[in-house]
Simulated scan of single mutants.
Amino acid sequence: MSDVGDLLELLHGAADRWTSVQATVCVRRDAERERRTRLWLAKPDRWRQEDGDHVSVGRGRLWWESSPELGFMSNQSDPDLERGHPLQSFGPHLAPAQLIPLLSFVETTRAERELSARVRPRQTHGSSFALPEGADEHLLTIDARRGVVLCIESFRDGRPFEVSRLEDVVWDEEIGDDVFELVPPPGVRVRSPRELHRVVTFEEAARFASFAVFAISELPPGQWRSRVHFNAAGGVDPESVYVTYHRADAPGFITLYEQPDVVPERRRRLAGPPQVVVERERTRITIVSETHGEDSLRALSDKLERA
């Protein structure tokens, strides 16, 4: 069998050569930006992932997640609501068989404990799964016994582009069951993601929100449709209501972004679509449109009525 054939066989069986792993995945791009993710995986179905203050764990179909932005979430009461498994993001390292049909193997080099493979994306397959898009060549450093990919160095036009490396790796040791638990602090309610971003009616938005919700009572001429989103408060993000109006018969788009007026204004006025900010009954309403000027938006603000 050729060296490439041996390598493909090694990669193909890599996911079956470990039962648990504890590792840090260090990704560095442009020699400046670095991201470190800590992983714990225990077959068949337990995992934990830590990205700074963002922590998530999973057991079978159930998962729990905590972050400053969104607070504490889980699908415990809604098991059909799935989220991605860490192997979807870090599979090129830990289950590299997925790379085989996506890459052309140009050159291989064998050492005592490691193999190196210089590979290029197959043009017919587009983006090489979780490998960085835009790279035209990769150098894989592979564990000669397990077949896992210890390091992925990506290049663009011959220059280093991104490096993804497994560090502090521990294989096949028992991981305490408490690692795969995530308990909310006292007084913190566990919510389903469905509670955070829901498509609702105007009446439901008015019932769910703690502030007054408004709608435009008279829109410009045309066949308009509306869609209402209620976003529950989570972490540092306050509750809000988005209302989007779009024309069915011609270009036309208007958005209302509504929050309590006691919430600090974090939406910056940027060069681009016109916007008008008004306050009604202690609700701050930002009206934005790419198809209507600021004067038209001010006229629409006079037609806001409580839903």
Rank of each mutant, 00 (worst) to 15 (best):
L304Q: 10
F72H: 09
R38Q: 14
S217N: 08
G71W: 06
R46P: 00
L297C: 04
L131P: 05
I175Q: 08
V169G: 05
A212C: 06
V163M: 01
G60S: 10
E195Y: 02
R29T: 10
D172N: 15
W64A: 15
L150W: 15
N75P: 03
E133W: 08
P273N: 14
V57P: 05
A135I: 07
P274H: 07
P260H: 05
F129C: 05
P260W: 01
I100P: 02
L115D: 04
T201F: 01
V288N: 01
S127C: 10
V57N: 06
R280E: 13
E265Y: 06
L41T: 11
S296T: 14
L70G: 00
V200N: 09
L81F: 14
V199Y: 05
P86F: 08
S66K: 12
S67H: 09
P221T: 10
L81M: 13
P86H: 05
A307V: 06
A307N: 08
A144M: 07
Q49A: 11
Q223G: 04
T109Y: 04
D16E: 11
R145K: 13
R269E: 14
F155T: 11
S77P: 00
P121H: 03
S226C: 03
W47E: 02
S289T: 09
V277P: 00
F72W: 10
A130T: 03
R46Y: 07
L41R: 02
S192A: 04
R284K: 12
D177I: 03
V263I: 15
D143L: 05
D136P: 10
L70Q: 07
A135N: 12
V106E: 15
A206T: 12
R191D: 05
E167T: 12
R35N: 08
V169Y: 03
A271K: 07
R159C: 06
S116C: 04
D136N: 13
D143V: 11
E32L: 15
V228F: 00
E239G: 09
G252N: 03
H125L: 15
V243R: 02
A307G: 09
S104D: 15
L8Y: 08
R110E: 10
W40G: 05
T19I: 08
R118D: 09
F202Q: 12
D45T: 11
E181G: 00
V21S: 01
A206L: 02
I152E: 03
S296A: 09
R269Q: 13
V169D: 04
R207H: 10
V278S: 03
I100T: 09
A271S: 10
D172W: 09
A23G: 01
A117G: 05
G60K: 10
Q88F: 06
D237Q: 12
A206S: 15
P160G: 07
R284Q: 11
R269L: 08
E50S: 13
Q223K: 13
R120Q: 15
A97R: 14
A117H: 05
A135H: 13
E305A: 08
A15I: 04
E34K: 06
V179G: 02
A307S: 14
R17E: 04
R146K: 12
R165A: 12
L41V: 10
P96V: 07
A111E: 13
G187R: 02
R113G: 10
A23E: 01
Y257A: 13
V119W: 06
G91M: 00
P238F: 01
